[in-house]
């Protein structure tokens, strides 16, 4: 009996507040927009019995999905989300790898502090971390002031409200997710392998390329997915740092829902976003699984 309660409580909670809501989204994505409250049709009328269910089912269709494929705004938003997420993931890797590498090479007694310094920003508010870049990147912001002062540029650069600002924002906020898995892979690495390589006449660069990189591959893959997956559905960064031409699907969904009040289309956008996410999530799971098997 106790066991039953132990299983049933979290089970029912997730069923009611995770799975059922998602099924509702699925259902509304197949409905039509209507001028009513709630603003979609058909409504399921269980009091009408079987006929109610049948007429309900017959009114569902894929119109919203056809609409999404016809209106270029949406597929452009999907493509540009994928592009922005991929470019920022690559940039995060380029910034994060040297940091993780430096941490793994650092003296033992420094490492707990370095680790704490990487984790600390993760606990600070995401919103504040994104916000802190507005003052830096704006036309009269600190970056432009600095560059003008040094004489590198003579007119301020426009960075805020462009895709560049979005890249910077994603790299900045997701950097700990990239550093930590790479660091934990590099930390486990046996240093004597590098010594052996050098004894055998390998240059340091080629030893790095032939030994360090392959041995940290699992960390690199995990880090990339941990950045790519949340970046794809990102809303805060494109809406604060991006411009009006920055198309990201999270932002489109938000506007479709709150500004246009088109719930069926917003739901269809959500369903497609999820379908796109399934591929990287499955690949990520596989990578983790493989890692666990190798550790054992």
């Amino acid at each position: 009996m106790r066991r039953f309660i132990l299983i049933a409580v979290p089970y029912l909670w997730l069923l009611a507040l995770f799975l059922v809501p998602f099924l509702i989204v699925l259902k509304i994505s197949l409905s039509d927009i209507a001028l009513s409250i709630p603003p979609y049709t058909p409504q399921l009328d269980l009091s009408a019995g079987w006929d109610g269910i049948k007429s309900f089912l017959s009114e569902l269709d894929f119109e919203n999905f056809t609409f999404l494929t016809q209106d270029p705004l949406y597929w452009k938003a999907y493509v540009s989300s994928l592009q922005i997420a991929a470019i920022s993931t690559l940039l995060t890797l380029l910034v994060g790898y040297p940091i993780a590498y430096g941490m793994a090479q650092a003296p033992d007694e420094w490492r707990p502090t370095l680790l704490l310094l990487v984790i600390l920003p993760f606990w600070t508010s995401f919103l504040i971390r994104v916000y802190s870049w507005i003052g830096i990147l704006s036309n009269e912001g600190f970056l432009n002031q600095f560059l003008l002062w040094t004489g590198i540029i003579s007119t301020p650069l426009t960075i805020l409200n462009t895709n560049t600002a979005v890249y910077i924002g994603i790299v900045y906020t997701y950097l700990p997710f990239m550093i930590l898995p790479i660091y934990s892979a590099l930390e486990k690495m046996d240093g004597s392998l590098l010594e052996a390589a050098e004894d055998l006449g390998c240059s340091r660069l080629s030893a790095f390329w032939l030994i360090t990189i392959p041995l940290s591959k699992a960390g690199i893959i995990a880090g990339c997915f941990l950045v790519f997956i949340p970046a794809l559905g990102e809303f805060v960064i494109p809406s604060l740092l991006g411009g009006s031409d920055t198309l990201m699907i999270g932002k489109v969904l938000w506007e479709e829902f709150f500004s246009n009040r088109d719930w069926p289309v917003a739901s269809a956008v959500a369903v497609i976003l999820l379908l796109i996410l399934v591929i990287p999530i499955v690949l990520f799971q596989r990578n983790e699984q493989k890692q666990r098997e190798m550790d054992q």
């Binding site: 910034v95 994060g96 040297p98 940091i99 590498y101 430096g102 941490m103 090479q105 650092a106 003296p107 370095l114 310094l117 990487v118 920003p121 600070t124 504040i128 971390r129 916000y131 802190s132 870049w133 003052g135 830096i136 600190f142 900045y172 950097l175 240093g191 004597s192 590098l194 010594e195």
Partner: peptide, 29 residues
Amino acid sequence: MRRFSWFNATSLTLGFAFLYLPMIILIIY
């Protein structure tokens, strides 16, 4: 064998500057 080179030191300094400067500027201002 760990070799903490100038390259490691630079990448850590730049990396942590990148992570912390925005917040430090925010606090100062």
